[in-house]
């Protein structure tokens, strides 16, 4: 992968008619976008579908894209909007609710053949409880938390991605951390760690 050619240059090449440039952009970002969406929607197939939708929308809009922000920020913006729509639809339609029980086990827990199966089960349950706690955040709190914590975006970039003021990002982030602390407190208070 030639990282020397920056994303914005690839966009310019695509706009000039070089199709391969878009393939290169997909290659660079598909893993990041997929895992961001997997963390957000916690469902394997939905994360895949939305990833495809992100690049589909990007392809369609790229022709007129102006480099006001980084390409990656723009891509996360498309992904975040789709994830927020997804969570809203899910909230309206509880039947549609899915959890990561749908994700094949091997993707959830790093399998160590030699470790204790009881312990593995406990670990898996604990992981599930924690991910459910993250799920209880509002869609915006969740997006702010995920983008800043796991996608390595600066608060300023999160603000650009989610069309929010930086101060608002901070408020959402504080609420998210407080909520996680309240929800997860039993895990360490019962010495479950």
């Amino acid at each position: 992968m030639d990282k020397l050619i920056d994303d914005e240059m690839l966009v310019a090449q695509f706009q000039a008619g070089r199709q391969n440039a878009f393939d290169e952009l997909m290659k660079r970002y598909k893993s990041k976008i997929f895992s961001y969406l997997l963390r957000s929607v916690r469902n394997y197939e939905d994360a895949e579908d939305i990833t495809i939708e992100v690049f589909f929308k990007a392809y369609r809009a790229l022709e007129n894209w102006q480099p006001k922000a980084k390409f990656s920020t723009w891509l996360y913006k498309i992904a975040s909007n789709l994830a927020i729509d997804y969570h809203r639809a899910k909230a309206r339609n509880p039947v549609y609710a899915l959890d990561d029980a749908e994700i094949p086990e091997k993707h959830l827990v790093a399998t160590d053949m030699h470790s204790d199966p009881v312990k593995q089960l406990e670990e898996k349950e604990r992981g599930l409880i924690i991910r459910e706690a993250v799920d209880q955040l509002s869609p915006k709190q969740k997006a702010v938390f995920m983008l800043s914590r796991y996608e390595g975006l600066q608060l300023k970039e999160v603000a650009e991605t989610l069309d929010m003021a930086e101060g608002t990002v901070k408020i959402h982030l504080h609420r998210a951390v407080k909520r996680l602390q309240t929800l997860l407190r039993p895990l360490w208070e019962n010495n479950d760690i």
Partner: peptide, 16 residues
Amino acid sequence: AALELTDEAQEELVVP
């Protein structure tokens, strides 16, 4: 503690 727990649980979500 809450952040460490969350990080750990998130690290398990890997896209193969």
